[in-house]
């Protein structure tokens, strides 16, 4: 699948300064890979092949090595996602408290339809994830960087309204 990508180099100006601070925390450049990818994703929205090549360049790694790391971790987006990226925990402890109904409500009310797909208006991508580490507050969801606890299907409408 080819994706239309409006690519601008990420690492220049203040972002480059930020990277220098990050590099100062580690004895090797390679160790800064995860935080560098986080910065890149924040700036570009997702980790494209071009972004991987740029990250490889600034850290003195090969693009293939960077891709190997990116594909290991689930939180780096390897394709564009909606404006709101929602992670819903459906692992056992949340599952027995109704997490699958929360997921269904989110998929229906955002128009995303299927888990992992993006809604036609580009605003929502809903994914099912394993344990978010907040099992006593079932069901937790992560809307972009906002951690929302105790979500039930009847609270979904308000959440959708808030982030729309």
């Amino acid at each position: 699948m080819t994706v239309q990508e409006d690519y601008q180099p990420v690492f220049s100006g203040t972002v480059m300064e930020e990277l220098q601070t990050v590099l100062g925390r580690y004895p090797t450049k390679q160790a800064a890979l995860l935080p560098t990818l986080w910065i890149a994703q924040r700036e570009h929205g997702w980790i494209s092949d071009r972004i991987m090549a740029e990250v490889a360049e600034v850290l003195g790694l090969t693009p293939a090595y960077v891709k190997g790391v990116v594909t290991f971790y689930t939180m780096y987006h390897q394709h564009p996602v909606g404006k709101n990226f929602v992670q819903v925990c459906t692992t056992s402890p949340c599952n027995i408290c109704g997490a699958e109904d929360v997921l269904k409500a989110l998929l229906a009310q955002t128009g995303a339809g299927d888990a992992g797909a993006t809604s036609p208006d580009g605003k929502w991508t809903i994914v099912e994830v394993e344990c978010l580490g907040a099992c006593g507050f079932a069901t937790p969801i992560l809307v972009n960087d906002d951690f929302v606890e105790n979500v039930t299907p009847d609270k979904v409408a308000d959440i959708v309204k808030k982030y729309r």
Partner: peptide, 21 residues
């Protein structure tokens, strides 16, 4: 900051992850 991998809670996996692997 980790990036979504349960296995990184295993001690040596965590070290690899800090090393950028």
């Amino acid at each position: 900051r980790g990036a979504g991998a349960y296995i990184c809670g295993e001690e040596t996996a965590l070290m690899n992850s800090i090393e950028g692997k």
